[in-house]
Amino acid sequence: MVKGHIEMFKKSLLFQMIMVQFTIDKGDFEGFLRKVIEKYDLIGPVEGDKSKLRRKSLFRKIVSPDELFLEKKTYFPVKGYFFDPKETLFEFDGDKIIDPKIELKKKVFFGLRRCDLNGIMHQDMVFLDENEDPFYKARRDASFLIGLHCNEGDDYCFCNSVELKDFFDLMFYDKGKEYAVEVGTKKGEEFIKKFSGVFKKKDKIITEEDRKIRNKKKLDTLDIKDNYDDDSWKKGSDLCVGCGACTLLCPNCHCFTIEDEVNFDLKTGKRVRKPASCQLRHFTRVAGDHVFRNEKLARFKHRIYHQIQYFKDRHEEVFCTGCGRCIEGCPARIDWVKIINEMK
């Protein structure tokens, strides 16, 4: 793991050792959110329009607290708020480069699940540690992360199997009549102070039982080093129709492509960054029309190995956050967890 991140991480652990815990009454919760909306942009999960086939739950700006959809994790990840799907890197006028101004209103994110939060942590490792990305950093600096703990997993997630870490400013635990609140960072502590009227200090209210997540799914092993040539990978890639939804829905995936958009004067324009997908053939096409991963099988294996092994080799963290969005969003529901579990 790279240095900056270890420090950040230790800081967050330090605050947990203090075990500062609070509670907030569900009666006060709506009022609290309204106050947040007054001061900041509140981003939270919404269900989307059910009557339309195409709409799925996603993170959106919340205008009124009753829009929130808190039953389960969202279909779409939150990553678009940090890793913008259409980021202007710079504008140009002939040889002149014009840096964009990034002015952002402070955003408070509510309802992030543990998988979402770990996804943000993994993207931090990529965009903030070695080569700091100013656009990502600006968005992250202007964000405040409030998590919401899941007690029950859905049909696809398996987060217990992938060693998730505590990474949040505040974490909410549903305790029936009230939410128990755990503080993760100094930022979180300051935030609580701002709203001191609604948060009551209560020590050790969060039990081990509260911290548990009951998953229906389980990934048996994170060690797939010796399985690269296993035939059963084909079971997955043979079902793949090649849409790339798995990578676009993944809270971690951060590969991108860069395009120039030129205006008609052929002098001015802008350079934009857009998400790409390693599951599409065009992704590995290089000069001379050579394609490194020409076979679907190779692309499929690459994705799983990046999620489970390659990232861990480099950053000492399992990349996959076990949210199962890649399985839920796949038209063929390719269950790579099952494929790995059935390997010898």
């Binding site: 090649g242 849409c243 939804a245 997908s277 065009h282 096409r285 969003g329 038209p331």
Partner: peptide
């Protein structure tokens, strides 16, 4: 060169399949 699905997912659509 990428399939329609890429832009479809970036438009935050569920899958019609």
């Amino acid at each position: 060169q990428d399939p329609v699905c890429r832009e479809c997912k970036l438009n935050e659509n569920g899958c019609l399949l």
